[in-house]
């Protein structure tokens, strides 16, 4: 009995937190998605079975929102990982005294409150004479309205790239110096060293960053909310999680539909779980689990 009790005690704080903050919301969301809870039925909600899901499927805008989500996740992910890799390689190739401050600078938007960060973007993209972009291009436009997708992806990507940059930089730094020497003596140019030695050795970090960012992008909507709120126009940049938020917490018509929003969120949970399982499989999760370093009796 004691053999099982001690490990359980060690695990219990983490287990408790996971149950409270991860598991409970998921269960609550799924339960909620089977009710018609909304502003009008707030005092007296009733079970409606799969009605919310049927309504979702019947929604004529669902396809657009789904495609928006795919577009948002795929393009931002590509920008994040690509830019992160580029930054990590470039800042690793220059001497540390230049590379380190540059990386620190690139981290600033991540530390900045999103509202401030978005405010800066809006300022940059406004019409002349306020907007810097308009001033430079000589065309006075609200660029946020003119090119909403580009702005959404760039604003997300500039913040997101710093994550990949950090992971890739530390992975590059952990490559032994002698390996770079060996490549040079073997006759490799800088580009050949990157392509044939560094990139293959970054396979795992790249996979990890891709997996992690896919999941976080699926559920992230704060920058879109602040930048365009799903607009401009009709659902131009509305993505799945933002739609769920709008339905459940911020309906245009004043009647917030918790049940319907929860159904959308529940779909996202399912997609997230499926994607995670897929990534765990290619990560070969079992191979990553090592023997414990501390024995507990």
């Amino acid at each position: 009995m004691r053999r099982y009790l001690t490990p359980f005690l060690f695990l219990s704080p983490a287990t408790l937190l996971i149950l409270l903050f991860f598991f409970t919301p998921v269960v609550a969301t799924i339960l909620l998605s089977f009710t018609d809870l909304s502003t009008t039925t707030f005092k007296n909600p009733s079970w409606v079975g799969l009605k919310n899901y049927q309504d979702l499927l019947a929604d004529p805008f669902l396809k657009k929102i789904f495609l928006n989500t795919v577009k948002y996740v795929a393009l931002t992910l590509a920008f994040n990982v690509g830019m992160g890799l580029l930054l990590a390689l470039l800042t690793s190739l220059v001497p540390e005294r230049y590379g380190d401050p540059f990386r620190a600078l690139w981290l600033l938007p991540r530390i900045l409150p999103p509202v401030v960060y978005v405010f800066i973007w809006q300022g940059l993209l406004a019409e002349a004479p306020m907007g810097l972009v308009s001033d430079i291009l000589g065309v006075s436009k609200n660029w946020l309205v003119a090119a909403p997708w580009t702005v959404v992806i760039l604003a997300n990507g500039f913040v997101g790239a710093s994550f990949g940059m950090l992971i890739f930089t530390s992975a590059i730094r952990s490559i032994s110096r002698e390996l770079f020497y060996a490549a040079a003596v073997d006759g490799a140019t800088t580009w050949q060293t990157i392509r044939r030695v560094v990139l293959p050795m970054l396979a795992w970090p790249i996979l990890f960053v891709t997996a992690y960012q896919t999941l976080s992008l699926l559920t992230s909507f704060e920058y879109i909310l602040l930048l365009t709120d799903g607009g401009p126009g009709f659902y131009t940049t509305e993505v799945w999680s933002l739609r769920a938020y709008h339905l459940a917490l911020s309906n245009y018509f004043g009647n917030v539909e918790f049940g319907l929003g929860a159904a959308m969120a529940a779909v996202l949970v399912v997609i997230g779980v499926v994607v995670s399982l897929f990534y765990l499989k290619i990560f070969n999760f079992k191979a990553l689990v090592t023997e414990p370093k501390i024995e507990i009796y």
């Binding site: 032994s176 390996l179 060996a182 490549a183 293959p200 396979a203």
Partner: peptide, 29 residues
């Protein structure tokens, strides 16, 4: 540049490319 010097070098850590087979390691140059 080292590649124009016609030298071969063996390192203390051997510095073999971990993602390549021994064949591809030796074939690398």
């Amino acid at each position: 540049h080292p590649r124009d010097r016609d030298v071969g070098m063996v390192f203390q850590s051997y510095a073999l490319y971990p993602h390549l087979t021994l064949f591809e390691n030796i074939a690398f140059p």
